[in-house]
Design a binder for these strands. Structure first.
Length: 825
RNA sequence: GCUCUAGUGGCGGAAUCGGUAGACGCGUUGGACUUAAAAUCCAAUCGGGAGCAAUCUCGGUGCCAGUUCAAGUCUGGCCUGGAGCACCA
């Protein structure tokens, strides 16, 4: 065995062998239980970044560990390859998005192989290839048939920079999630998926996911935004037969209504406007329409609005109140109209103050009554000025008042969600075409399944500005109706890339199927994903959409489970000097350089070493250096002892010879490392245990001059165990060492270490002796001692004797195998 | 504003159940080897105080209370950072 560690040489050699042998292909027919380990697949943007390296290393170690533990592990990789950057690159370089994407995929594939990742490349999926997007289109048609895909005219988020509409989930602080430019409102006819049909079950089923972090579940729950309240319908004084319904979560405050607000886009607003107010209302509405999301946000504190001139009637009091329009009422939420109670709602309070509208207190804290002159009182309290409900606690009044409305026919209980339907059309080229045609006679006609895929046209001019390049094709849009054969126009919008990524994990179960997206028995066999690993930035978008897809496909009878990802690990970001690595900050580290200078094993070891996976990871060059030194140290330990190591002692050791601290240390390491992986994948402590074991072997070896047969057995056992324990992380080094020491086959095919519980602990125990809760002495004692004996040995301690001299012993606490606490006065 | 999450040495972090706070590493300091350097190895490294010394002693896990024989860990209240949502009635 070579004296020195040459990672570049070793790594290249093994990567070639693994590649040639398809070493990590997963067999379909196996008696072993399945395990599906999955990383969120990347967008092929050009090169891997350290976030990818962290993500894929974590999943790879999990996959290898589970495989060694006896699972049949599915660990695939693919490409989320539709999307705007490819199209922008094409425009910029006059190239084709497909060429650009293919080149990136080729380069990144090379990098993934250089990282030593154990992927089953035979199952690779690439969302921009017709053999994949054919099935994306097919799934669209199934959703369409089921009424879950529909087209409607609506106010949508428009990004001018990207030249396309966006889903609500893709608007961050009123800006585009991709290019950060300000999002405008436009009225367009667009395709939606009816995710709102699943709002309740998407919320409820979060409880079925104990393997997900609370942060992600809370974010989804907030996004779905369920609330309980009531609908009340108000008659309009001036117009017979017209009612304005409102949704409120505070039915208890209904006696305090002093005005009512409808959104500028409210459907009946024209009818509700008197001729005298028409001009002002029209102007206000025109302004509201022009305003972008961000402008509406920036006017957060300053309320605006105009009166309509008409009045509503409160059925509880008979009181009349004016109707207004204001943009703080949102047309998409509830009924688009709000009953305003300025005394008990901060927004209504601000509005009423500004426009000098009346206020009426209806809830009070009996201990500390507020007149609500300076701010709204929104805490619990007791009803006042509320007729028959006076004196009732407001929580009870919510129910009682709504019940009265139900009884008298002007209201009902209502559960409301904030989740909106998912807008999936994009006015871009590089996406899966939406498979429908518009016929002059038949209207919207889905493309028949046997005509799929609807291929992207090639005769496209990518240099156009202000419209989708796909519309420049001479061959694409013009078509005939599949129904009547008449003249028809093809849909030129493509699907949001998040549609493609909402089902890719299912395709891995049957990636080469040309007849269906996946066979039902295969998808049911491999799914759900046992461990999903990826960034927190997908907490809402991708993870919510995927959950929706899984539930919808289950309802379509395509699969038999209702949650796609059993366990989710959201890894933290990779930072450098305390901030996120980014090109604009110039603090990126190129993985290629690390591979070249230190090798992939060092990169893998380091990216796992310093922080638990869920936390942010601060990159440090010194840390990389430290990991490289450690691998060198391990290599030297193996190489310098290679002649004394025998494969006969591979991973097990006769118990009769076990009364040796070195053997115990190995068992302790086996147990500790296995438990750390099982316990939320704490790889940072796993790695510290690699170091502890390495240090222990060095120390033990250094204390011996010549080794007898038994010593050699202990040494072999220790080193071979260390190699196996490190094999999921330092995949190349351990493979090479295993081979050099005479191991048969691959170290990665060896089963995981089995430890002996009796040996996985120190031979004696340290008894901590406290007096009044403070540590005063430590005693080495036999494990077998009884509680009384432990107590006796503690009392024997000279230090204890000294400290309790002349004092009264109140009590003595004995914790078996651990501690004795003498309490004195 | 609401929700989630975190706060431990110079730094990253460790500490199954409430039971030795600071594992492991980075950095720093000193030493060995070397003509020298790199590499490697050894030792020290939470803070204050006492001692030539081994050692002894006090304090210490964001802050304030509490529960307990015993609190980084549990309870209540606050402070600070990070993340998400945000005029959602």
């Amino acid at each position: 065995m070579k004296e020195n560690y040459f990672p570049q040489e070793i790594e290249k050699k093994w990567q070639k062998i693994w590649d040639e042998n398809d070493a990590f292909n997963v067999p379909e027919d196996s008696d072993k239980p399945k395990y599906f380990a999955l990383s969120m697949f990347p967008y092929p943007s050009g090169k891997l970044h350290m976030g990818h390296v962290r993500n894929y290393t974590i999943t790879d170690v999990i996959a290898r560990f589970k495989k060694a533990q006896g699972f049949n592990v599915l660990h695939p990789m693919g490409w989320d390859s539709f999307g705007l950057p490819a199209e922008n690159a094409a425009m910029k370089h006059g190239a084709n998005p497909e060429t650009w994407t293919d080149e990136n995929i080729a380069y990144m594939t090379k990098q993934l192989k250089m990282l030593g990742l154990s992927y089953d490349w035979k199952r690779e999926v690439t969302t921009c290839k017709p053999d994949y997007y054919k099935w994306t289109q097919w799934l669209f048609l199934q959703l369409y048939k089921k009424g879950l895909a529909y087209k409607k005219e609506a106010a949508v988020n428009w990004c001018d920079e990207c030249g396309t509409v966006l889903a609500n989930e893709q608007v961050i602080d009123g800006k585009c999630w991709r290019c950060d430019s300000v999002v405008e409102k436009k009225y367009l006819s667009q395709w939606f998926f009816k995710i709102t049909d699943y709002a309740e079950v998407l919320l409820e089923d979060l409880d079925k996911l104990p393997g997900w972090g609370d942060n992600v579940k809370t974010m989804q729950a907030n996004w779905i935004g369920k609330s309980h309240g009531a609908i009340f319908r108000f008659k309009v004084k001036e117009i017979d037969g017209l009612e304005v319904p409102v949704y409120t979560t505070r039915p208890d405050t209904v006696h305090g209504i002093t005005y009512l607000v409808v959104a500028p886009e409210y459907k009946d607003i024209d009818k509700l406007t008197t001729p005298e107010n028409k001009a002002a209302v029209e102007e206000y509405r025109a302004n509201a329409r022009k305003m972008s999301e961000i402008e509406r946000l920036s006017t957060e504190r300053v309320k605006t609005g105009v009166p309509l001139g008409t009045h509503g009637i409160n059925p509880f009091t008979g009181e009349e109140f004016p109707l207004w329009t204001a943009d703080y009422a949102l047309v998409e939420y509830g009924t688009g109209a709000v009953m305003a109670v300025p005394t008990h709602d901060t927004r209504d309070f601000d509005f009423a103050k500004k426009f000098n509208l009346p206020m009426k207190v209806v809830i009070q804290n009996p201990e500390n009554p507020s007149d609500c002159k300076d701010e709204a009182y929104t805490e619990p309290g007791v009803l006042v000025n509320s007729g028959e409900f006076n004196g009732m606690k407001n929580e009870e009044a919510k129910k009682a008042i709504t019940e009265k409305a139900v009884r008298e026919g002007f209201g009902e209980f209502k559960t409301q969600y904030r989740l909106r339907d998912w807008l999936i059309s994009r006015q871009r080229y590089w996406g899966a075409p939406i498979p429908v045609v518009y016929c002059e006679k038949c209207g919207i006609v889905p493309v028949p399944e046997d005509q799929l895929p609807v291929l992207l046209p090639k005769d496209v001019d990518f240099s156009v500005v202000g419209k989708s390049p796909i519309t420049t094709s001479q061959t694409f849009a013009e078509t005939t109706c599949p129904h009547c054969g008449g003249k028809a126009r093809r849909e030129t919008d493509t699907m949001d890339t998040f549609v493609c990524s909402s089902w890719y994990y299912l395709r891995y179960s049957d990636a080469r199927n040309a007849e269906m997206p996946f066979a039902r028995d295969k998808v049911n066999k491999w799914l759900p994903v046992d461990q999903y690993v990826g960034g927190i930035e997908h907490a809402i978008l991708h993870l919510l959409y995927s959950r929706f897809f899984t539930k919808a496909l289950r309802d379509l009878g395509l699969l038999d489970f209702d949650e796609p990802f059993k366990n989710l690990l959201t890894q933290g970001m990779v930072l450098k000097d305390g901030s996120k690595m980014s090109k604009s900050k110039g603090n990126t580290v190129d993985p290629d350089e690390i591979f070249e200078n230190y090798g992939a094993d060092t990169a893998r070891l380091f990216i796992l070493s310093d922080s638990p996976p869920a936390r942010d990871f601060d990159w440090s060059d010194a840390g990389v250096e430290g990991c490289y030194k450690f691998l060198n140290r391990v290599w030297r330990l193996i190489a310098s002892n290679a002649d004394d190591i025998s494969m006969d002692y591979k991973l097990e050791f006769p118990l009769a010879k076990a009364n040796d601290d070195m053997v115990r240390n190995v068992h302790i390491a086996m147990k500790g490392i296995t438990n750390d992986i099982a316990n939320d994948f704490q790889f940072n402590t796993v790695i510290s245990k690699y170091r502890e074991l390495t240090n222990a072997i060095y120390e033990w070896r250094g204390a011996k001059k010549d080794l007898n047969a038994e010593d050699k057995a202990v040494l072999s056992f220790a080193i071979l165990s260390l190699i196996k324990l490190m094999s999921p992380v330092a995949v190349h080094l351990t493979e090479e060492a295993w081979k050099e020491l005479g191991g048969n086959g691959s170290v990665h095919d060896e089963p995981w270490c089995e430890w002996d519980e009796n040996l996985a602990k120190a031979s004696s125990i340290t008894l901590v002796v406290q007096v009044n809760g403070k540590v005063k002495d430590k005693l080495e004692v036999d494990e077998a001692l009884s509680q009384d004996e432990l107590k006796a040995s503690a009392m024997e301690s000279p230090k204890v004797k000294e400290l309790i001299e002349g004092k009264e012993i109140v009590k003595v606490i004995v914790v078996p195998k651990k501690l004795v606490n003498v309490v004195v006065k």
